[in-house]
Nucleic acid binder design. Structure first.
Lengths: 126, 126
DNA sequence: AAATGACAACTACAAATGTAGTGACCATCG
DNA sequence: CGATGGTCACTACATTTGTAGTTGTCATTT
């Protein structure tokens, strides 16, 4: 499994579409994203090409001879990489200040708080 | 207080130096950062200029007629902005999945877990 | 066959970023 | 005074990113 490459903002949207459902063709992805992004199909194609170059996607031909795209890296791995880099950048790599920050700046329901506390406990004896 | 501008990676290092101690001159900042970044002084000057243009820093002349730099935006505000944008990008803007992610991917001490649980509780009745 | 339309490969081009180098000015050291 | 060293304003230049447009090929449709 390759190290997750750097994935830019726009590229991330494309990845999300493919993590949701794969494989897809360029025009399918464009249609999927259109409501949100309003991108021209060529824009999506450019992003797809770049993501293939970066090794984040792989391609294949489907039965009708059209190229399809699918993730070559797991979402979870990319999220971890992005999270690491964010934590590094902003919190000097320390998890606690990060968690403190988001715990304080988020409005959570009692339910969510309960879940999170349970997770925290579990994170200990693991 | 201005809305925090976009601050790039390299720029962020410069901001950190100034949030730590301000005002400082360009060459002081260069010296501060040098062990970590190895940047030429002109590099730091470029970053400083850009940060002033963006409104993240303000300048003044010190007694010896040299320009000094100081933050024009609070660190906390910038952290919040970066955090928002990260949460948006990666977790669709939802705090809980973000917290779940970092809670699960961090090794925390029992002490830290205790603190965080307390914070979570406090975040409720606030 | 000519027109149309999807698809792919290339090309385009400005803004942002990372990382300096150059030239000009001024004060200070010999 | 002429060389030296700090400061500053400009300029430089490759990469990455965002966002397409252009051209060439086929297959399909009149």
């Amino acid at each position: 499994m390759p190290t997750p490459p750097d994935i830019s903002d726009s590229e991330w949207s494309v990845m999300e579409a493919l993590w949701e459902r794969a494989p897809q063709t360029a025009s399918e992805i464009t249609k999927t994203l259109r409501p949100v992004t309003k991108w021209a199909e060529n824009t999506v194609r450019t992003l797809l090409t770049r993501l293939v170059e970066k090794g984040a996607l792989k391609t294949a031909e489907n039965d009708s001879g059209t190229r399809t795209y699918a993730p070559a890296v797991k979402r979870e791995a990319c999220v971890r990489a992005e999270g690491e880099s964010f934590m590094q950048r902003i919190f000097g790599g320390a998890a606690k200040p990060l968690l403190v920050h988001f715990a304080q700046n988020s409005k959570l329901t009692a339910e969510e708080v309960k879940e999170l506390k349970k997770l925290l406990d579990q994170s200990l004896n693991k």
